[in-house]
């Protein structure tokens, strides 16, 4: 029960800060919408008209997935950097609840609340492009849940780097384009892509939203590979984070910025 209270507290905190930093939230909506418009107009005026509809749908899901990935994979790293700068990181570490769980709860809260914002953006985008995607919640909910777990795993790896090196902004700026490639590339391109995080998740979400592939249509194999990928990256992320945490404590770097 006490872990649920941690999640609840972080959900309230994220909601409060989203409200207090309203200009940031609005600017995020505008940015995503502007990037989508750029892609959309590119497809419309430069791309092949015969495949414009499919490409637009592909691009809509990819854009939203990219921002979701950015938030999940960079989020914990940003949180660590911000908390260290503010001076609150050490307070989080003074809790009897493990810091990784507090950060996990923070990330979960951030993603859940931002999904609401993304839903609004998605509606805007769909209205602009007149391309209406399918929303089969029975398929999409487990898909998102498993995908997010893998993304947060990578987020923990980035956070581990942030704990030790602090100045990771330059790395994150480069990483965002790697994340774009990860969500955009179709899983069928190479079997090795199964090893990369998010690629399968992104492909399956795209298929569900554009082609209407349902939960059972994917087959057990696809679900198994998706879950395995997410589980491995989540576990690996946590292991790397715990290693970095121990190292930061040994070097006395935890609260430094």
């Amino acid at each position: 029960m006490y872990l649920l209270n941690v999640v609840g507290a972080n959900l309230r905190k994220v909601a409060i800060e989203m409200r207090r930093y309203l200009p940031n939230t609005i600017s995020m909506i505008v940015t995503i919408y502007a990037i989508f418009l750029m892609f959309f107009l590119g497809i419309k005026f430069i791309g092949n008209p015969s495949s414009a509809e499919a490409n637009t749908q592909y691009m809509i899901v990819t854009t939203v997935m990219w921002f979701l990935t950015l938030m999940a994979m960079q989020g914990i790293g940003w949180e660590i950097t911000t908390e260290a700068t503010r001076g609150t990181l050490e307070q989080l570490y003074m809790s009897p609840v493990p810091a990784w769980f507090i950060l996990f709860a923070r990330m979960l809260a951030t993603i859940l609340l931002n999904l609401v914002v993304y839903a609004v953006i998605l509606l805007l985008i769909m209205a602009t492009s007149s391309q209406w995607l399918r929303f089969d919640l029975l398929t999409l909910l487990p898909l998102f849940f498993i995908s997010i777990l893998g993304m947060i795993g990578v987020g923990f790896m980035v956070a581990g780097l942030a704990l030790i090196f602090k100045q990771i902004q330059a790395f994150l700026q480069i990483a965002q384009f790697i994340f774009l490639a990860m969500v955009a590339v179709p899983i069928g391109l190479s079997p090795y892509l199964e090893l990369v995080p998010v690629v399968r998740a992104s492909s399956m979400i795209r298929e569900a939203m554009t082609s209407g592939v349902s939960l059972f249509d994917f087959g057990a194999n696809a679900w198994l590979l998706l879950s395995l990928n997410a589980f491995v990256y989540f576990s690996l992320g946590l292991l790397i984070y715990k290693w970095a945490e121990t190292r930061a404590m040994n070097l006395g770097l935890l609260g430094q910025y």
């Binding site: 941690v6 507290a9 972080n10 309230r12 905190k13 207090r20 307070q91 989080l92 009897p96």
Partner: peptide, 19 residues
């Protein structure tokens, strides 16, 4: 960027207590 009460509730929450 949080109020006095919100800070108290948040830190208590992080120790596993409900508001």
């Amino acid at each position: 960027r949080m109020t006095v009460q919100e800070n108290l509730e948040y830190f208590a929450g992080n120790r596993g207590h409900s508001a």
